[in-house]
Write a protein that binds this DNA or RNA. Structure first.
Lengths: 350, 350
DNA sequence: CTGTTAGCGCCTTCAC
DNA sequence: GTGAAGGCGCTAACAG
């Protein structure tokens, strides 16, 4: 069946310990190393990760927990995390928690079983219960998201206020004035942060946004975005721009606008957030605020690796700065409603 | 630090063995069970997964290896796999191999270390080297993809021939006659299968497809699709429809068409494959052949679980049947080039 | 430099 | 029903 080190040692004619040392580059005579290496090769010996884990106390595995693997943002984070930790010989255990808290907590509790050496988690909802579990966690954890200030956990976050500000300023600079907002659920961390940021950005620009120009989708998904945007565009007539709290919601805005015959960007400019792959794939291409998904994933992974190396280092909080990526959905000048047929024309695409 | 069963036993005033039995529901007196349960609760005891692994020989972990986590198809598979195996108490270790074979092989070799009890792999390129490694694997594996007939490995596959046939027939039924094809790399399993399927479907319909109506993208990605489609639409004038080997390539066709002022679907019908989330998000919404990504993931997971339960069961091969999902990108009637300005109008959307 | 020995935490015979 | 003891595969002390 499975080849053990004992068998290798026997075949090489040395003791178990010598075999171990020889393979691990500890002090051993050239002859022993040669004998053992050869026996190992002949038997196709592979060390047992389970036994090594038990012995060393570490699994060389890290867990990555996200709300929704379906959202491309998390995929980018995942990829960044994986790429980063692989160099240090870690594998990544993925865990999609759904947007339900119970699964989060369940995962955190099971982490105590020691199947992973650390955790990167990007929760949609940061509840007291979740924080309590994080606090009693026996392995290092890095949270991607907006953590309360008094929580002593390594943390990487996007800068939503600046990000939303970039979007609003860009729209204002393009001559838009009647700006609507499609947010995600307000009981989520990004939902609350981005909603607040939108209000402030508008206030700072001296823009008064009526209540009906802001809607909240049931979820950060395309379907929810389409519904919410439909409501928004119907209830707040005359909008000339919409900011969406993420790209999926923005795609929903496109669909709602199309249904109402509102041309994008001619009649309605749209700006998304996250700058996920989708932004470049849509037509017209979507202007979006890059909140640094990959960067956040990478930095979270780095923080985790650093803490694994030195458990006593001071807690770090990193903020990834946003960047506006201007594409077609916001670049054509605003036009009055009836100047041309609704629809996209190739002339408007760069 | 970490609470061990020994400590629980001490606190409960029973032996290690009794504590183990009490917690695992083996024969033990009610009193012992009570004492142990209480001690465990008070100490917040959690069994150590590493030790259990070593003892039992199983990790309750399964690995899932895919070429590209960035492709939504794999995300859907991943989700299905995770959902399916979670019920049986397995965790999923994700491994994105890139499209490079070396990483595949590397993973397979390291699987011998016993950190996972089984593997689901969906390789883009099924090479001899890969098959050789699969063959000498010490844990059960299920391959999603087109495996050679003589390989005795549990296998789940899509039905590309039927799928491409559905696309072509649908286009013919909508009155399209000059159909182009954007394929992915021919050295990949899906690329080869779909290319072949397209040729046959056209032949079966009595359609002769000139060589220039078929192009091969460098990769199954949006960027590669845009490039390839640009070439296609320029070199094969007068096409009234394009089938793309996946949805990302289809999105590329949209962009290339827009650049050339070819209205979709008025001038050019487009059909994608995979029916990923993207299909519904694009505008016009993309008609696509659902190849059952989620179903393939789920079935692969089921096969793997079944084999873990019974290593001696006969090898199974499952084929997931495709389904055409008709949306807007293929439903408007074909029109001559100059009848109207290029662009999409809301009237064309259902 | 090498071999012997003792665990890592758990489960599981085996006697009692 | 219970406790003592052995061992999963490996590494790290300790002697020699």
């Amino acid at each position: 069946m499975r080849v053990t080190l004992t068998q290798v040692a026997q075949r090489a004619g040395v003791s178990l310990a010598s075999a171990s040392r020889a393979l691990n580059g500890e002090s051993a005579s050239a002859r022993t190393v040669e004998l053992v290496a050869r026996a190992a090769r002949e038997l196709a010996y592979v060390p047992d990760a389970r036994a090594q884990s038990l012995k060393s106390g570490s699994t060389r595995q890290l867990a990555f927990a996200v709300a929704d693997v379906g959202n491309h943002v998390y995929v980018e984070m995942l990829r960044a995390v994986e790429d980063t930790v692989r160099e240090d010989g870690y594998r990544v255990l993925i865990s999609s928690t759904g947007s339900a808290v119970p699964r989060d907590v369940e995962l955190l509790q099971s982490l105590g079983r020691g199947f992973a050496d650390g955790l990167v988690i990007s929760p949609l909802r940061i509840t007291g219960e979740l924080l309590a579990e994080l606090d009693r966690l026996s392995v290092p954890v890095v949270v991607i998201g907006l953590l309360p200030d008094d929580v002593a956990i390594d943390n990487v976050r996007a800068n939503s206020p600046v990000g939303v500000g970039l979007a609003v300023d860009h729209l204002l600079a393009s001559g838009r004035r009647r700006i609507g907002f499609v947010n995600g659920p307000l009981d989520t961390t990004p939902g609350r942060a981005r909603g607040e940021a939108f209000r402030r950005a508008c206030a700072a620009a001296g823009l008064s946004i009526p209540a009906e120009a802001s809607v909240v989708a049931d979820d950060f998904t395309f379907a929810a975005g389409t519904d919410a945007a439909g409501t928004l565009l119907r209830q707040a007539e005359g909008l000339d721009a919409v900011v969406a709290a993420n790209d999926l919601l923005a795609a929903g805005v496109y669909h709602a606008a199309a249904e109402l015959g509102l041309e994008v960007p001619g009649r309605l400019a749209v700006v998304g957030m996250d700058d996920s792959a989708l932004a470049a794939q849509l037509l017209p291409t979507l202007t979006s605020v890059d909140l640094g998904s990959a960067a956040r994933g990478r930095q979270a992974a780095e923080l985790l690796l650093a803490r694994l190396r030195d458990p006593d280092r001071p807690v770090q909080r990193r903020v990834v700065q946003p960047r506006l990526v201007v594409r077609s959905s916001s670049t054509a000048p605003s036009r009055p409603a009836a100047s041309r047929p609704a629809g996209l024309t190739s002339e408007e695409r760069p």
